[in-house]
Amino acid sequence: MSVDLEKLLRPVERPMAPFPPKYMVLASGENMVVRQVGRKDIPSILPYIRPLIHVERDYYDLVAARIYAELLAYYRYRVQDEYVLVVQVEGELVAVVNGRMVNADVGMSYHTIALRRGLRVGAHAFAAKMEYHFDILNQKEVLIVAESPIGFRRWMIEYELEKRPGIQHELGGVPSYALTKELFDRARGTLIVGRRPVPEDVLAKAEEAILPPSDPPRPPAYLMAAARSEYDPTGTALMLQQWKQEGKV
């Protein structure tokens, strides 16, 4: 008797209501679109995550490595009930968030990675992810952990998450925190913003292609400056000044 091993390895997935795209205006005045993508889009995203695996600053290496693996696992049917939201400005990929349904009532947040910084892009993306769990999937709570101090500040402190000491998050490490429906509702209009429907032209631009980040990590230009952080922008700026003094730029 032949056995289709792939059928055994693939999880049985439950139907999940789709995330309706939304948009918001950033501090830069640009429109930012949050929308759900499917498996076919993952190969377009992975090349933009991969360089971040080498960025030590702010735990980008850890988060990028993990979200890369999670996206790959989603693409290859190795995680049950996972979803992926992409965040774009004029088509440019500025953030990716993902998570999964544990059961009908409980969701699990996986990762949030911002490819553009300084405009609250990651915070907006995380808020959209939470909106998906509560408003679209109608869940009661979402389990969350943070891997970086920035994440801890953004999620645990800003949302005042509740501790779940007895529950181990799938990402391992520290015990889970949880965002409950009540806490989520309290953050509406302040931490959770955005509008629907997305203007047709703005959505069309986002769906046309997932464009690369406009400011990707670069190799170190000045080794002393890059001693601890392979792509520390400081090194680039110091080198620029040196080049100016030497008349090279």
């Binding site: 918001m24 205006v25 950033l26 609250r120 302040t190 913003v193 955005g194 509008r195």
Partner: peptide, 9 residues
Amino acid sequence: SEEAFTNNP
């Protein structure tokens, strides 16, 4: 913008 208060609290 509608989001200004969140962008700039």
